[in-house]
Computed example of a mutant assay.
Amino acid sequence: MARRLLSIGECMVELMQADGGLMRKSFAGDTFNTAYYARLFLPTDWSVDYFSAVGTDTISYEMLAFMEGHGIGTGDIARIEGRAPGLYMIHLNNGERNFSYWRSVSAAKLLARDPHRLRHAIEAADVVVFSGITLAILPFEDVDTLLAELRRAKASGKLVAFDPNIRPRLWDSAERMRATISDGARAATLVMPSFDDEAAHFGDASITETITRYRALGVADVVVKDGANGATLAFGEAKFNVPSATVEQIIDTTSAGDSFNGGFLARYVLTADAASSASFAAELAASVIQHHGALVPRDKLPA
């Protein structure tokens, strides 16, 4: 029987460095990146769909064609007149990245405006993916709408995966950011945070503190990503570390965590083996950061 992964969030126009001082255009965004990598490694009896909103302009239709060309369904993406996709530019310094953003009229900010469309899409999915960025871009009332539907999905037994992906510049206050991230975790069955974010913004002194805090919010399973230190997993009563993979040269760390998430989910939903899924995801992320841009072609990735 066909199964379905639904990823919810914002895809943006991506401008990245190219040869000769030029910029190369692509499309990316945290939950879309996760969907892209999941699609690469899931079998054909799984569909991968994106839930978002775009405009009715030329670049919006280019984005939809790009998604469809990479096997990601766009039937749950709303078209909103007068809106357009956001845009970001990657700036690199020895492989580490920072970004400039232009997203004031981003259509994705209205992705949860229609609660019936949202409920229908989530009910049709087996796995649902969202992030702290998904929550950060939405109006207050739409955050409540989205989280209510995700709690319904969790209660019905779906795998609801949440990456807190903490970006302070997207929030109007640190207090609301922490509160909303915590609410997002309460709606999830699997949380996949990055330890540096959790230490910086929640004050966690150790990975054990991060796991304990999310478990106290009702999260069943936790995968804490910690860069070169690998990932620490807490699944059921088991807690264990999976080492990072060898990286010859870091070119661009964009999408390191997103690709890990997509690789992990693609393996985990097939095998239910968290350790081997994390090992595969670590190999995938290590390969991704040795190339430019968020989305690396399949032929440059692990077999």
Rank of each mutant, 00 (worst) to 15 (best):
D19S: 12
A107Y: 09
A294R: 03
L111P: 00
M67R: 02
G263D: 08
V269Y: 03
T232N: 06
F260T: 01
G71H: 06
V48D: 01
R169W: 06
L295V: 03
S287L: 02
S287G: 10
R298D: 08
L265E: 00
D19N: 11
L5H: 02
Y50I: 09
E96K: 14
D273L: 11
A53F: 07
D183I: 06
I80R: 02
R117I: 06
G21N: 12
I59C: 10
R79N: 08
A234I: 03
T145L: 14
R298T: 06
P302E: 11
G257H: 03
N98A: 14
L295N: 08
S194F: 07
S259T: 00
V129N: 12
D221K: 05
D57Y: 02
N98H: 15
R151F: 08
Y268C: 04
S276V: 11
G227F: 10
M16N: 10
A124S: 15
L42M: 03
L22K: 14
H70V: 03
F235T: 15
A18W: 01
R215F: 10
R117F: 06
P115E: 05
Y214L: 13
H91Y: 11
L87M: 13
R176Y: 05
L118Y: 02
E10M: 12
V224E: 03
A228N: 11
L40N: 03
D19G: 13
E141P: 05
L147C: 07
N261E: 09
W171R: 04
M12T: 03
G73M: 03
V160E: 11
A272F: 10
E248K: 11
I133C: 08
S255C: 12
F99W: 01
A282C: 10
V54T: 04
L64E: 14
L301V: 01
L270H: 04
A18N: 05
L92T: 09
L22T: 14
A266N: 02
G29V: 01
R298L: 14
R298E: 13
P243H: 15
M16F: 08
A78Y: 07
S279I: 09
S131Q: 09
I59G: 06
A153F: 06
N93G: 07
F240D: 06
A161P: 00
I77C: 09
